[in-house]
Each structure stands twice: as C-alpha cells, then as structure tokens.
Design a protein around this nucleic acid. Sequence first.
DNA 1: GTATTTGCAAATGATTTGCAGTGCT
DNA 2: AGCACTGCAAATCATTTGCAAATAC
Lengths: 135, 135
Amino acid sequence: MNYNILLKEHHLKVTPQRLGILSFMHKAGHINIEDLFTQLKKEFTSISLATLYKNIHAMLGVELLKEVQIPHEKPKYEITKTPHAHLLCQKCGNFEDIFLDVDTMLNNVAKQSNYELKESSIIYSGICPKCQDNH
Amino acid sequence: MNYNILLKEHHLKVTPQRLGILSFMHKAGHINIEDLFTQLKKEFTSISLATLYKNIHAMLGVELLKEVQIPHEKPKYEITKTPHAHLLCQKCGNFEDIFLDVDTMLNNVAKQSNYELKESSIIYSGICPKCQDNH
DNA sequence: GTATTTGCAAATGATTTGCAGTGCT
DNA sequence: AGCACTGCAAATCATTTGCAAATAC
C-alpha cells in the first residue's frame, strides 16, 4: 500500500511520522495508541505522544482511519476499508475483521426501525478456532 | 423493577447509593458516568465520584450492568437485559435498544468464522424517524 | 515563503487508590 | 461484631494545549 498517495488523497501532508503511523497500523491491523507509540519509538526515537494523538485525530477527521471500540478496552484504530464486522477472541485476545454482508443487515434493520441507517459498528466475541483446540 | 432484589441476586449489598444508581440508570436507559453523577448529586448531595466508579465496576463485575461503547463517545452503561442491538441517531443523539434476533445472527457468524461465539456488541447509526421529518 | 507539523513541557480531564469513618446484614 | 461501602484527598493515567523550532510543499 502506498501511504504517500493515501495521505495526499485525504489532503494531509506527508511526513515521516505519518508514514510510520500508517505502516505500523497496517502491519498490526488494529492497534491502540499505547502499543502504536511503543512501536513507533523504535523507528522514530524522538516522536512524541502529542504528535501521535494529533495525527490520529487528523486522520480520523478525514476518515482515513476508523476508531474501533471494544467494550472494556482502550480504543483501537484501523485504516478505513470496506465496511465489515469484527471478531474478538476472549481467550487469546485475537482481534480480526470479518467481511459479512453488512449492507444487507443494515437494510433489514433500517426497515424494521425506520431509521435511515448509514453505518454499523459490530463486534462478535467468543473463542477462536485455535483456542478451542488448545482447550 | 425491584433494585433491592436485583442487587441481592448479584451478591451485592444494598446501599442507598446503589439503589440511586440503578434507578437513574433505568430511567435514562443508557447513561455515562458524568451525566449519571450529575443526576445522583441532586438526590445524594454527598455522593462522590469515587463511589460511583467503584459501584459501576462492582456491578459490571457481576454482570448486573453492561458497558456500551459508542465510537468517539464516552462509555455508557445499561442494566443487563436480554441480548439486543442499539440504534444511534447521528442528528439528535437519541440512543435506543432494538431487539433484533441477535442469536440467529450470532449462529450464522459462528458458522462462517468457526468461532464459538458468546456475545455481540452492535450499534447501528443513522437518522431517526423524527429527524428525517424535521429534515 | 508560508503554512503546517513536530516535540516539548505544562495543563487539563478522567479514573483509581488509600484510608478513616460509617453503615449493612 | 465484622466486613463491605462511602467519601475525601491525593495519586495516577490519558489526552490536550500552547508555543518555538523544524519541515513540507
């Protein structure tokens, strides 16, 4: 993925810090501020938390990133992609995307509720296949 | 609803503060710490934030309460009821329950993902019927 | 060259903790 | 009576802000 272009498309200036944020975010899939900062420190010894927060907000503002709220956890961030749901393993903590037909679900709920629905935030939690085996 | 019994069933001692928390929580449906504290202050002039936090955590621990995380908002709390999803109006902020067939959805996703799913956290956002009219 | 971004330090805000006194069962 | 709960004050943790220097375009 070309983060350079991604930033420009969203009218954000390209800086090494921003490229680093996107690169680690992509590698992790979903990551919270604290873990992201730890990772970034390895490559940018001088990066500050303030910069990280400012950039996360800038990228959220232009919808380059999306915030994901797992109950009882600190928010995680992901690069915006096609609408999807999430799976959380309550045992090992694995957190992953699942590309359900979110649109169909949205339409059904819209009909039932008379809301004009735009988006959904969906997390399913349970035990992942691996953890079922190592019961 | 008898909060006295509700607390005892969950092995928590009955105190005026806890009864107050549950009563306001029920009245509001979903409420965050700050708003709940403001409400409580009216009835219990001496209640402290520390007490509120401690009690919220105690009640979460025994699953008498559930935390609901709306992206970009402070967590709200609700009294645990049968599994359901939530609707958020992006215009007026109205936040309500919707009793979809959460179990069927859970089973479908379980099949597709091979996760052994236990619960889901679902929020649909859009424009509520009222706000559509006052467009 | 100008506007934006960075990193620091300080400020703010939210939540937690320790402890002495009080209240529940 | 004994243990749990309350409220206060202080401590901790997370996030934001202001500003001078550095950097992107």
